[in-house]
Design a protein around this nucleic acid. Structure first.
Lengths: 240, 240
DNA sequence: CGGTTGGTTGAGCTGTATCAAAAGATGTGG
DNA sequence: CCACATCTTTTGATACAGCTCAACCAACCG
């Protein structure tokens, strides 16, 4: 290393670390050796729901990967408003930092199992293994595309449309969607959805009622929704 | 290379390629040798204003860097609405792709000078030079942070506040802001601003009038604004 | 079971989109 | 260099969607 490590590493998506499954869209493909290498510096940890993993502004010394469960990454604004930047699912990486400090606060939504990587060791490893680093780079660009999609979502003005896009987004998460039953699990609260969608809690609630009334989705409890009309839901999602 | 190149490279910010200036926030630091290497595969090209560099969906074979001028990166939605993902300034990189196709359309706002890098050669180079790739990674994470800020901007409900944030954002671009005169150059049209801010063209116009009325900024022609009250502008920008 | 957290529903208000028209800038060719 | 045609921007009037405030309901947890 020629200069001090700049800890800028990103929230990354869908890294099948420790889980060599079918390579999903933009999935990382690591060799056995690389997996082993990563395993050497990783620490496994379990957390109950609602635990803060790290807080915005804290010194960024680790990158995390979700093994099981769900995490949210958010920022508190001066006004007290919360903005959720992303929801993290199994195989996602998180720990975006700037100038050595975490940019967001990360908190578990459900009980979670995480892997923790010391930032400096991970960076050193990536610099030496260009192929592996490239896989990580793919993940960051994936994140970037996701962020752009979110911007498009936020450009919509109608609450039902935003919610429809959100449900469609969640349905893309393999760990949250069953193609057979068409049930999407929505582990976060309505309030979290509002903070992600840039809507008020009430608007989310009303939008949900509206989608149900139109026959697009049917809620099954608070944390699951069955897509009753996939075609029209997709149409509404795409009708930006 | 062990497998076919996945052309996922990203729109990157503030890479001082071919322009070794004072390293700005998150700026890339390349050695002389790395600069030379990059120069070997780069092609310089000049374009007049309003020229499409590449179109959404076209095969992604190149990454571009802005040397001079301004570029916008946008998507056309089914409804005909345009969403501008980002404005590109000198030293920015662009060319985000997915599965071998560009995600956005890139178009020059002014006459521009660009550098074009063949994607496969660049990727090969990055994989061999872990340090250089890491610098690129920093850029992607920078982009990601920018995207998150934009999401916060879009979360705001008031048009004047959004515009204030936008002007502040533009004022962070060294190539668009003069600290002495406090003049921000806004090379894009009002319509472009609207497409970036998720507002209607008319709302942008009204918001601009409102900021002028409040004494925060004074417009000098269509493509420049003087910040008359930096403190209050910053306060409004931050008052999310 | 009581308390806490999370969610739904209703009434009124504010602000932005939309439609419409006019005014201002820009560029072209005579 | 001017006159015209086009594009961009501003300004105005109206409608509607989502925010806010407020009350009520449901679920979950010790």
């Amino acid at each position: 290393m020629t200069k001090p490590v700049s800890p800028h590493l990103a929230t990354l998506k869908t890294l099948p670390f420790m889980a060599p499954g079918p390579p999903a869209d933009g999935a990382v493909v690591l060799t056995e050796r690389q997996r082993t290498e990563l395993g050497r510096i990783a620490l496994r940890l379990r957390l109950p729901a609602r635990k803060v993993v790290y807080r915005e502004g804290a010194p960024a010394v680790s990158i995390y990967a979700v093994a099981e469960g769900f995490v949210k990454s958010y920022r508190e604004l001066a006004s007290g408003r919360r903005v959720i930047g992303s929801f993290l699912f199994p195989r996602d990486l998180f720990g975006l930092a700037h100038k050595g400090h975490y940019v967001n606060t990360a908190q578990s939504i459900s009980p979670v199992t995480l892997y923790r990587f010391p930032l400096n060791e991970l960076v050193a490893m990536l610099k030496q293994d260009g192929e592996m680093q490239f896989q990580f780079m793919m993940k960051v660009t994936h994140e970037l595309r996701e962020a752009q999609r979110r911007a498009i979502l936020l450009g919509r003005r109608d609450a039902p449309g935003r919610l429809a896009m959100f449900v469609s987004l969640m349905a893309e998460e393999p760990s949250s969607y069953s193609r057979e039953t068409r049930v999407v699990s929505l582990p976060m609260t309505r309030s979290d959805m509002a903070a992600f969608l840039g809507l008020s809690l009430e608007s989310v609630s009303r939008a949900a009622a509206e989608l149900r009334r139109r026959g697009l989705i049917e809620f099954e409890g608070r944390h699951a929704a069955r897509i009753t009309d996939p075609i029209r839901l997709a149409k509404l999602s795409a009708a930006v």
